[in-house]
Amino acid sequence: MDETGKELVLALYDYQEKSPREVTMKKGDILTLLNSTNKDWWKVEVNDRQGFVPAAYVKKL
């Protein structure tokens, strides 16, 4: 969790967005987890953008 109590995830792999609903991340990025109710796609925030990334590409910290 960060200082505001939000849950964080670590990008395990690079991911290039394939639609406007997704976000690009690089391996090693720390992202804010917004929603993990879907087992396949998690909603995150990175670089002031919100979108989805494959759940298998990130790990909760």
Rank of each mutant, 00 (worst) to 15 (best):
W42I: 05
M25W: 01
G5W: 11
M25P: 01
D40F: 15
G5K: 14
S36L: 05
V9P: 00
K27N: 05
D14L: 02
K39Q: 11
Y57K: 08
L34C: 06
L61T: 06
S19H: 11
K26T: 09
I30V: 11
V23S: 02
F52G: 01
A56P: 07
M25N: 00
E3H: 14
D2T: 14
P20I: 09
T32W: 13
A56K: 14
T24S: 15
N47Y: 13
F52R: 03
M1H: 14
E7I: 15
D14M: 03
E7C: 15
K26P: 00
K60P: 10
E22T: 07
E3Q: 13
V58L: 15
P20A: 11
Y13F: 11
M25V: 08
A11M: 02
L12F: 04
L8M: 11
R49V: 07
K60N: 07
S19V: 04
G28P: 00
S19K: 07
S36Y: 07
T4E: 12
T37P: 03
V46A: 15
R21W: 15
Y13P: 00
T32F: 12
P20K: 10
K26F: 10
Y15V: 01
K6M: 09
N47G: 15
A55Q: 05
A56Y: 09
T32L: 15
R21P: 05
N35C: 11
G28T: 02
K26C: 11
T24G: 09
D2A: 12
N47V: 10
L10D: 01
A55H: 03
N47A: 13
G28M: 03
L33C: 07
Y57V: 07
F52Q: 03
L61H: 05
L31V: 06
E22S: 05
K27T: 07
E3K: 14
Y15C: 03
G5S: 12
K6V: 12
A11P: 01
E17F: 05
R49S: 06
D48F: 09
D14Q: 03
T4P: 13
L34H: 05
W41M: 05
D2L: 14
K18L: 09
D40E: 10
Y15P: 00
L61S: 04
L33N: 00
L33K: 01
V53T: 01
D40C: 13
T4N: 13
T4L: 13
A56E: 13
Y57N: 06
D48L: 10
T4H: 13
Y15N: 00
P20M: 09
D14S: 08
P20S: 12
D40N: 12
N38E: 11
S36P: 05
K59L: 10
W42M: 03
D14Y: 04
V53Y: 00
M25S: 01
V44F: 01
L61N: 03
F52K: 03
W42K: 01
T24L: 02
A56H: 11
S36A: 13
L10E: 11
N38R: 07
E7P: 09
R49C: 06
A55M: 04
T24W: 04
N35Y: 06
L31A: 08
E17C: 12
E45A: 11
P20T: 09
V53E: 00
S36F: 06
K6F: 13
D14K: 03
G51K: 02
E3W: 09
Q16I: 15
W42D: 00
S19Q: 08
T32K: 12
R21C: 15
P54E: 02
V58H: 00
D2V: 15
Y15R: 02
T32P: 15
Y15L: 01
K60Y: 09
D14N: 07
R21E: 14
T4S: 14
V46S: 15
V23H: 03
E17P: 14
T32D: 05
D2C: 15
L34Q: 03
